[in-house]
């Protein structure tokens, strides 16, 4: 037994040595504060601390989940998140492919920079611009009316609002994915394309049978990573765009919890909701890992 262990160590020690600094830092800064989770089960009073605060079991969870509107909030969060992931991935991949077709390096770089820029505009500012563009008298509705259709209440119509959130977010953030997918494409072996050309494959065929399959692993990875955040459907965006009239379809968990007034020391409820989000994300990530492995034979982590 001891011998086996030492043999294993001899094989691994270099890897372990490499991992050491990261593991130590992570242990201190990520695992160190983990005990804070117990706050979710306490009536937390900062002055009494973790040791002195009253243990209340599941009360914090009960309070949140007994709210009729909280369940619809969970549904909204899922709905908005999932479609953001789907359309966001689609947009990033398609745009990366389009950019990849541009052979001149100059324009390619400029375009790539431009689509990354909206990532940096905060939602406070972006929301101001969006309400201008999408309002009743905004430019979008003027076009719609010029085409003879009825104006669309993008911001205040309950059934439209989630889609406004989804598409504005996709538009703002797809540049991020594009960067990753493009970096992947540039690392594809050019010989693969050369031999495909010799076989008489056109660009569509090349894209379809070389580029896309090479992208699949990274697409799966990015999706799994996004699933880890599925219950955070974009606080800043929703907070800056929603209003009471669209709460039934537009309110997400984070905005709901924010309105509780966490600033006012309601740490415990915030922690309880956070723990709930973590658990759900864990289940989703595990499921997606299994699916990715069973269907594509691909190990994400």
């Amino acid at each position: 037994m001891l011998h086996r262990l030492s043999l294993r160590f001899r094989k691994e020690w270099l890897y372990l040595l490499m991992l050491l600094p990261g593991v130590v830092l992570t242990a201190i800064f990520s695992y160190g504060p983990l005990y804070g989770i117990i706050m979710a089960f306490q009536d937390f009073n900062p002055a009494l601390g973790f040791a002195g605060s009253k243990w209340v079991g599941m009360d914090n969870f009960k309070l949140i989940f007994s709210q009729p509107s909280f369940l619809s909030t969970i549904y909204n969060t899922f709905f908005i998140s999932i479609f953001k992931i789907i359309f966001g991935t689609l947009a990033s991949v398609v745009f990366a492919l389009q950019l990849n077709e541009i052979r001149q390096n100059g324009p390619k770089r400029i375009y790539q920079t431009i689509v990354y820029i909206p990532n940096f505009i905060s939602w406070v500012i972006m929301a101001g611009i969006l309400t201008d563009i999408l309002g009743s008298n905004g430019i979008v509705n003027e076009v719609i009316m010029a085409l003879g259709a009825k104006p669309v209440q993008f911001i205040s119509n309950r059934s439209v609002f989630p889609w406004t959130l989804i598409f504005s977010d996709v538009w703002k953030t797809f540049g991020f994915g594009t960067v990753v997918y493009l970096a992947t494409m540039t690392s594809i072996d050019p010989e693969l394309y050369e031999s495909a050309v010799i076989d008489g494959a056109g660009r569509w065929r090349q894209t379809w049978s070389i580029t896309l399959p090479m992208l699949v692993p990274i697409i799966i990875l990015m999706t799994v990573l996004a699933l880890g955040n599925v219950l955070s459907a974009g606080f800043d965006q929703v907070y800056n765009l929603y209003s009471p009239v669209v709460y039934p379809t537009g309110d997400i968990i984070d905005t709901y919890v924010y309105r509780l007034g966490l600033q006012n020391g309601k740490f415990a409820i915030g922690t309880a909701v956070g723990l709930f989000k973590s658990l759900v994300s864990s289940v989703l990530i595990s499921a997606s890992l299994i699916i990715a492995y069973k269907t594509a034979g691909y190990k994400v982590f």
Partner: peptide, 11 residues
């Protein structure tokens, strides 16, 4: 012990 009850009113 109450949570965001004002939403019901504003909506």
């Amino acid at each position: 012990e109450t949570v965001n009850t004002i939403d019901i009113i504003t909506t």
